[in-house]
Structure formats: C-alpha cells, structure tokens
Design a binder for these strands. Sequence first.
DNA 1: ACATCAGTTGTAGGCGCTTACAGTCCAGAC
DNA 2: GTCTGGACTGTAAGCGCCTACAACTGATGT
Lengths: 355, 355
Amino acid sequence: MTPPRSTTEAATSGRGSTTVYDVAAHADVSIATVSRVVKDHPNVATPTRARVRASIEALGWRPSATARALAGQTHEAVGIVFPDLAGPYYAEVIRGFEARSVDRAAVHILATHGRPGAEGLVRDLAERVDGLVVMGETVRDDVVADLVANGLPVVVLARPPVAGAAAVRSDNDGSARALGRHLAQHGHDDIVFLGDLDGTPDVAERLAGISAGLAEHGHSAPRVVTPPGFHRDDGAAAFRRAWHEGVRPTAVAAANDQLAVGTCMAAAELGVTVPTDLAVTGWDDQPVASLVTPSLTTVRQPMAELGRRAADAVLDRRAGGEPESVLLPTELVIRASCGCPPVAVTTRPRPDDAR
Amino acid sequence: MTPPRSTTEAATSGRGSTTVYDVAAHADVSIATVSRVVKDHPNVATPTRARVRASIEALGWRPSATARALAGQTHEAVGIVFPDLAGPYYAEVIRGFEARSVDRAAVHILATHGRPGAEGLVRDLAERVDGLVVMGETVRDDVVADLVANGLPVVVLARPPVAGAAAVRSDNDGSARALGRHLAQHGHDDIVFLGDLDGTPDVAERLAGISAGLAEHGHSAPRVVTPPGFHRDDGAAAFRRAWHEGVRPTAVAAANDQLAVGTCMAAAELGVTVPTDLAVTGWDDQPVASLVTPSLTTVRQPMAELGRRAADAVLDRRAGGEPESVLLPTELVIRASCGCPPVAVTTRPRPDDAR
DNA sequence: ACATCAGTTGTAGGCGCTTACAGTCCAGAC
DNA sequence: GTCTGGACTGTAAGCGCCTACAACTGATGT
C-alpha cells in the first residue's frame, strides 16, 4: 500500500466518500487491481475479482466521475446546446435526446438565448463532455469548427453541415415545395411568409421551398413579415401590425405552428375569418395544430426523433464511428386552415412521437 | 518551475489544451500565482496580475472544470431530476430552471422514467454537481435523505418536504378547494377525478382539495378513474373506457390539462357535448387550455417559476443559505368547459410566463 | 535443471488545479 | 542599523483514479 490515505472507513456516513484506496485495503489488493475489476480488464484472477466486487459492494463505493474524467480523459457525459428552450419543439428534441442518452452518458444542457457570452458558455460545456450537439442559431460556425479541430465529436442539429461534424436535420425543402404547390392550387398568389429568416437556418430553407413550389405553378414568391420571435404572441403581434400597415394577403405561411396559431388569433380579433378570408399554415405539427379551430394545415416534423438521432450520432462518434449525416423525412399534413374541407379529429395516437 | 510538463505551446491548435503550467511559464510566475489571479485573490501585485491576465488571454487558456472539481471540490454545476420530460409542464420547469442557472452553473438534467436503475443514476448525478433538484416521483425519500446527509444541497420540487432539503411547490389545496366549490355551485354531485394518485404527490393533494371544496357544499367526493399516464391519449382512453363501463358523471375534474383535453376529445367521439352534457376541468393552464373549444376551466400554475425558484433555492443553498421552502400561489381560471359562459379569447400575453 | 512465457498484481507517475505553508523582500518601527 | 510585519510569490502535497512498466509466480519446453 502506498499512501495510507484511508477515509473514515464507514461506508454510508462520513464526509468525503469512500475511495479506491478504501476498497483496495478492504479487499487487500492494490488500487490498480480495483481499477481493473471495475473496467472488466481480463487480467484479473477470478477469486480476486470476486473479492474486490464484494468489497465494492460492502463499502458502497462508486468511482468518482470527476477523478475518472481527469485521469482517463472521458467524462461519460454529452451535451446539447439549444438556442432557446421555449415551446414544444425544443421540449420534444430534448426529450428524445435525453431518452436516448441516459443509459450511456450524463446529459448537459445549455440554452444560449442569443446572449453575447454564448461562445464562452459553449466552450465551457465542451470541456465537460465527450461529445456535443449544437443546435440551430447558437454559436458561429468557426466556433463549431474549432471544437471539431480540438478533437471533440460534434453534431450539428437543424443547422447546415460543418466540416468534421455529423449533421442531423429534417427535410425542409421537400415538404415546403409541396406546401407551396398546395397553396398555389388553392389559388393563392398574395402570400405572407411569417418568420425570422435570421432566427434559424431552417426558416430560410422553408421559405425557399415554398417559393419554389409556388413558382412551379407560376405564382410569385411570398413576401416576408418578420416577427420578433417564434411564439404565439409574436405571430399575433406581427400579423396585427402588418394588417394595420395595409397588408392584405390571402394566405399566411408561418414558420412554425405557434406563429400560425397567433396569426389565427389576431385574425379573429380583426374580424378576418380563417380559412374563408385568409388561409393559414404552420410548421412542425405540434400537438396544438390538430386542436385549434380550424385545425392547422402544417408540416409534420419528427421532433423527438431529431433529438434521438442527434444522441445516436454523438454517442456513436464517441465510440469511434465516422461523422454520418441524417436527413429525416417530413410530411405535409392537410387540415382545415388552408381552406380544405375539415377532417374529423381523432384521438388515436399520432404516428411518431405524440408523447 | 517544477515539472516542465509544457504542452505544445501553440494556443489554439494541438491536442491536450493549454494548462496552468503553460500560462505560468508564459507569464514567468508559478502556477499558484496563476490560480490566485483567476480567483481574484487579493494578494497579487497589480503588475503581476496584469501580466498573468495577458498570458491567459494570449494563450487562450480556460481552466479545466474537471481538474478544478477534483482539486477544489466544486463543480460549478447543478442538476435537476425529472420523472419524465413529456408535455409542457416539464418543459416549462426546465426552461425556468435553465434560464436561472445558466449564469452561475452548468446544468445537468436527468429523467428517471420510472426505471428501476433510477437511484443509481441519481447518485451518479449527485457526484457531478454542487446541488440537486429532485422533482416529483423519481426516487424514494430515503435516497434524498441520504444525499442530504452526504452534505449535498438538495431541493425537492413538487414533492412533499424532506428534512434538510428546501421544498419548492405550488399551492394545490387552495385552488383545488375553490375548484371543488365552483363545481358544487354548478350543481355537480357525480364527478369523476381523472388522474393517477401514485403518479405524483401533487395529484393526491388536488383530489383532496376538490373533495374538501365539494364537501363545503354538502356534495360527495369524486370517484377516481386512473389513466395510465398524464398525456392526452391517456385521458381519452381512460374516459372512453369508463364510459363503456357505464360511468356517466356530470363532470370530470382532470389532474392536468392534457388529460382534460383528451377527455373532451373522447367525449366528442361519444357524442357527449362539453360543457352541456359534461363539464370538464383541467390543471396547469397550459397554453392549449385557452385554445381548445370549449376553452378549459383550469388552475393556473406558474410552471416556469417553479423551475426558477428551484434554481434559486439550490444555488443559494450552495452559497451557504439555509434551506428555505417556497409555496407558489395558483389561481382558478374559469373558462367555458365547466359550463360558465365563454369569455372572449384574447391574444394578450398571459400574466406570468406565457413564453 | 534452467530459460521462457503467460498470467497476475503492484508501483509510481501522471491528469490540471487548489491551497497550506514556507520563504523573500522591503518599508517602517525602535 | 537591526527588527518586525505585511505584501507577494513559490513549493509541494494532495484531489481520486488510470495505466505503463516492473515484478513475481508457476508451468512449460528442451
């Protein structure tokens, strides 16, 4: 035995919990052997292994994650960086991410909220984890690239690819085109796109897709109205303001369901009937989309699956896999708010991840 | 200089980032001085301090959180344990918690999902943080007590107090009584309480309060129908099943808004009109409550504020404060689903934390 | 009988930082 | 002119665990 720095041997009491040294002493072996037993190293005699296991059990020892991280360079933890945490979208992503990670690593979360110190927070987080998921508009690409250069497995989520990082995203273009075509078929040629193009890369892709779909039918591109955020109230306020400025579109294509719901509420206030006077569409197919009246035509996006795939990607990378990118399918969901005949609302669970 | 274990001095490149030793060498001081500068220890001469600061800047050094935790016994991190992560309730709590913590500590999250290994996961988490928030039905009280005994600041959230831990909760009793009285005034005497009493301690309190409110008017207590969970589909399924078993209440008081919405959907399927044939009430005042038709009578609970207060409590405890408990007020929100005349829906932001 | 080798176990030097304790230096006190 | 105390700074011993390398034990081969 080297340093006899035994702890107050009592197992469950005492400050400063039990350490390898306690276990080693109890089992009458060296700490190296204890360490080997813990990580199932083959070169340990069966009886020794059993003895050590018994001692670990008896003392209730749990190796310190911190010490392990310092010595072994692995944290058994992953992190995910969000731009924000409000609304069902992020909630679902985080749910999927956590569910998939929990068995393999501890989970760190961080929301940057557009604050200036975000980069520092992210770099700080990066030092505590074995892999990092960076979502949407949080930190600049060069920061991501720097983390990658430092050897950290990074996954970008709902954000354009960065060299060396896996990318997980859902298809904006395909469904956006379909939506554009659908609106064109309804005859709309004066459409407002409601969303902040700087808010997240996804939004610009959706606008581009819708424009392309409209163009296929010779219709002109939507004009953009920019709300201050992505919440219900932002949508209501933006639509109200635009209306007061004399904007009279026949349809509003919102960047997400919250904005669409807000638009509907503002429209009701202004005496505008949806979908008769104004068609409204959303994006995400959040649970609320099928509950409002009229039910919302939108694009279903597998929100929880995004989180799960991001977890898989970052954990696989950590395990030595290559950065592999994923594009998840989306689906145009036609309901009533675009002017189509309403369909019956059912209570059957939704296909993917309704809960 | 002791061990000359300099790193590849290049700042931004190279494996194994720069360390205190690099900074110390660059500034021509000892690592102790660097450490003192970092933590603003007074005994450092001004020019030295400036020199060290410059070196830190020049090398782009960031102290390793891991090493710091090992040596200094502080992680600069807090954790929060959820029973689950689905739905707006947890999402809002986590949002409030993160927002309040982010400037002072890294944030760990964990959801136990009722799995058997939960205790191990929680104990694991406990070793990585300086304080822990434990919410609802996640681990047994004796586990919480053990963490407290180990000296960890613990806060219990939406869960009965545990000795030595601060408790943050919202008032179930007051508003539940008010709701019970209100239902009695509507004349209801055959009420179903929809919720799993084992699911979370809050639920039992709500039932008790409602019963007390009904009793004040001489009405009998609700009978309990237990759905498998707290989601919309659980509510729909449970109500449907009860109906098919011949249960014909005049009102359903659901344990949360999701269950209430599910009940409304199932009722619609069964040809039961809300609120004419059946009154329905929820709990939480989730955003969806005011959007559905009829709008939901419910109890507003400051979900994000719960998270914020929990963060305050755990961070204050870490800073040496005493465990202090908080009971946040709730408010009965009368809308249309109980049979009261519907009120106009507005788009004004809700008082507390609509976003 | 002796070198060889696989199987086990122990020794010791980190990982990057904190901090008690031990100087060093110099102005002011006596 | 020496002494004293305060302001600075450096030394070194950890924090709890990992792991390369050394060391020891028998069994096997010749």
